[in-house]
Nucleic acid binder design. Structure first.
Lengths: 192, 192, 192, 192
DNA sequence: AATGAATGAGTGTTCATTCAT
DNA sequence: GATGAATGAACACTCATTCAT
């Protein structure tokens, strides 16, 4: 934990490999080659491959969640909040495409591993904080009535779907061009 | 030498293994054990593991697409069409959860493999046929103006997102309970 | 043993495969593809892969030996005989390069297999007949004194060596251009 | 972690297996058993079976070539040179029969593999150096005029042929007994 | 004589992980 | 903290051969 080194170098190298070859096809050897670290060093810092994956996943989602929650404190209305969920997500994906692609495809794997509980707990807290911040608007009747799981899928689902396609290179349209439209539709979809 | 056999038995066994262990963690040996076929027979019919995956993927998407397109011919309005996209999807997922989970997680892999072109071509044709069937309503101004990729993500994105969570056991709410709500929101989101 | 069929077709296909891929890298499947016969037919005629190899080997050496011995009966002198051994060999190699290459590389394999004894016996008889035909000249003192194994190596060794290189594409010079020179040197090397 | 080890131990074990079972019939498992190395170590050092074969081949031919070229610098006449080619070869074969047998039978295989270019280049240089050392005698008219490829086959062909038979156990006569005779004949065959 | 689906032991190779230095 | 040679269980896949039709 010197500057921002070794551990981070390894994580960056791992992400680059995951992007290029896929998580399963990436070997420890590849990460070693790209990071410049030795195999021993790699294991010294992370213990095993699964923990590299989990570290990358948890750091990514934590960063995204922190950024989103920070934005929320400045949002002045229910509409601003919902739009922020969408634009914040899209902005983060555009700024961190490799990380986003990795996270979008590795959730199941991390959930199934030894850090699954940590992930679920982090997620539960994030959702809880989001709900708290929206609670007042909710009480004021700003939103359509619907199951909470449905609510989040309606808000962020189109963006997830579009982002997946965009990150896979399956789409002509730029993600940024649809940013505001997706935010607007999200609000319309859940507002009362 | 049963009725409709060997190849299908292998495919069913493969899907069961993929569901239980994940695609990567499933070995040929496991598929052999569960299908009752010999390794030789397995390779006689499919050639390699990747082709088992691709066959399962392509058959699943083809079946879903055929069912959806069949429903479209009976849909009497733009609203009915859009709602059908959502309800048809959800119904198929509920009826074939293992297959749906597999397809939701293996697209990138199949796209990257030797059947990638076949997949893309099948997909292109499906999208083209869908657009043709919606073209008349579109001309009548039934829909908001937006990029076509955005349109599909807005319609089906929430359902994809919800289905992913539901299939992963991350949700309390039943998928079927949200079926009509999601269909209704999809129509509101894209209608002019 | 109808016309000159099936069995021969299989043998020809096998030789073509051996030439293109090597004996070990050639699979029964490849021979089946190239011959048009079914796997069953292939096994009906030959029983196993080793016997295809042996059949091809023995037929090739028998044909060469027969041709050489036929020529010997017309040779009028010790010199003519020795030269014939060389020119006959080179002519046969030039006329049957694939067969020659196969034979040059598969002797050990056939010797080690179930037809090893048959091969050795055929060879013994061939050598014996050759020696008989040379016996008179030998008695007349036409040749240098040397062990019989040495004698044959001296006569045919340079041609074997050159033919190996030529068949492997390692030589610029044409085999035919050296034919008479090699024959002449062979005679000089063994004549008293 | 012995003296001059692992890699050499593996090479020695491989050669012993090739001698006993043949190159194709030798499995990595056999080499592992005989060398005492683990499979992982084997692959750590050589990467794959083909590279074990190539290493053994190239080291053998390099050793022989070096020995021969060293002898050449002390040869005082054209005759001495030509005889040395033969006697040097025979001596090396007698001293390293397993290695010689392996080399005599694996050239095509190595040429066809990834080290093919390295082999051809090493060979080209060796031939070039030999020709340089003979160039002066050649200018003095010591040799019969003939294509260079023919020249080498005439000199060494009988020895190659005899050595092949001897190494395969097909000959009664000892190789050493024919050594000087073969050398003498080689000189007679190419001298002007 | 012919067919080809089925078999399964055996192969080369991979790769996460360990551990002595 | 760092190193990298060594390990070996596990894997996908091959292919000669069999046999019911």
């Amino acid at each position: 934990m010197a500057r921002r080194s070794r551990k981070d170098e390894i994580l960056q190298a791992a992400l680059a490999c995951f992007t290029e070859f896929g998580v399963d096809a990436t070997t420890i050897e590849m990460i070693r080659d790209r990071s410049g670290a030795s195999i021993g060093s790699l294991y010294h810092h992370f213990g095993n491959k699964e923990r590299i994956i989990a570290a990358l996943y948890l750091e990514g989602t934590a960063q995204y969640a922190a950024q989103l929650e920070a934005g929320f404190t400045n949002a002045a209305s229910a509409k601003a909040c919902i739009e922020l969920v969408v634009t914040g997500y899209i902005d983060w994906v555009v700024a961190n495409p490799d990380w986003a692609r990795f996270i979008l495809h590795s959730r199941g794997r991390v959930e199934a591993g030894e850090m699954g509980d940590a992930l679920r707990e982090a997620n539960r807290l994030h959702v809880q904080r989001m709900l708290q911040m929206l609670a007042e608007y909710q009480r004021q009747g700003a939103f359509k009535a619907m199951p909470v799981e449905c609510f989040f899928s309606v808000v962020i689902g189109p963006s997830h779907d579009f982002a997946r396609n965009w990150l896979a290179g399956r789409t002509q349209a730029a993600l940024t061009e649809c940013r505001d439209l997706l935010a607007q539709i999200a609000w319309e979809s859940v507002s009362a």
